[in-house]
Computed example of a mutant assay.
Amino acid sequence: MAEEVKVFGFWASPFSRRVEIALKLKGVDYEYFEEDLSNKSSLLLKYNPVHKKVPVFVHNGKAIAESQVILEYIDETWKNSPILPKDPYGRAQARFWASFIDEKCLPALWKASWPCEDHEKVKDEAREHLKTLENELKDKKFFGGETVGFVDIVANFIAYWLPLIQKATAAELLTEEKYPKLYQWGHEFENHGVVKEKLPSSDQLIAFFKDYFERVSTSK
């Protein structure tokens, strides 16, 4: 019997794209459902009644929400091309850095990209988090070593979305001069053969963020 794999996502969401990248790395076929986040489908609300957001992953009728939880499920279900380290310490470290990215980095980077109160203070916090990641990366090609892994996938926003937001808004956070290792890592990640196939159009994303920036600016 063929396995049923479904992904409910939104084209511009880095969280949705995490799931698609992991499935592509594993070679797992899936059916994709694009969601209108202003008019969410009944299936999305049924499968994720708690958070009511994307991504939602459905495997043989069983639904899973939250991108990091989904990534771990995918890695445990399809053993080929592992994205988490095999040893317990390595797995714990990967989880730690993934949590740091989602709980600390992304909120700060997002806030620092748009007009807000205490903008310089917010940008300083965002830059401090980027420096922490720069130091953790050391001389590795990817956070997990020589291949794309769990932390890299979770950090996809920093590698691809953030530079495009910077182009849309003229914000300056992640630069090659200030964070050479992190900048190079982002370049390697977005140009990875498999990853590249699952990234949204840069032109579409820039237009999307320019529109968002205009709405944020005019609402002030």
Rank of each mutant, 00 (worst) to 15 (best):
L162Q: 12
L71C: 11
E214S: 13
P55M: 01
L43N: 15
E72R: 05
F10R: 09
G193H: 11
G186H: 04
Y183V: 12
R18N: 08
E76F: 12
G27L: 02
S41G: 08
P49R: 09
E188C: 05
G145Q: 08
P49Y: 12
H192Q: 14
N60K: 03
K138W: 13
S217T: 15
L43A: 13
E146F: 04
L25I: 05
D36R: 02
H129S: 08
S41I: 04
E117L: 02
K178Y: 12
F208N: 07
A108S: 15
P107Q: 10
A207T: 12
E34R: 01
L137D: 08
W11V: 05
D29A: 08
E177D: 13
H192A: 05
M1D: 07
R91D: 11
G145I: 01
K121M: 03
G186I: 03
F208L: 13
G145K: 05
A94D: 11
G144E: 13
K53D: 03
L44P: 10
R17W: 02
E66I: 13
P180S: 02
N39R: 06
T147S: 02
T218F: 09
L23P: 00
P107Y: 02
H187T: 12
K198W: 15
D203V: 15
I70Q: 07
E136K: 01
A168M: 01
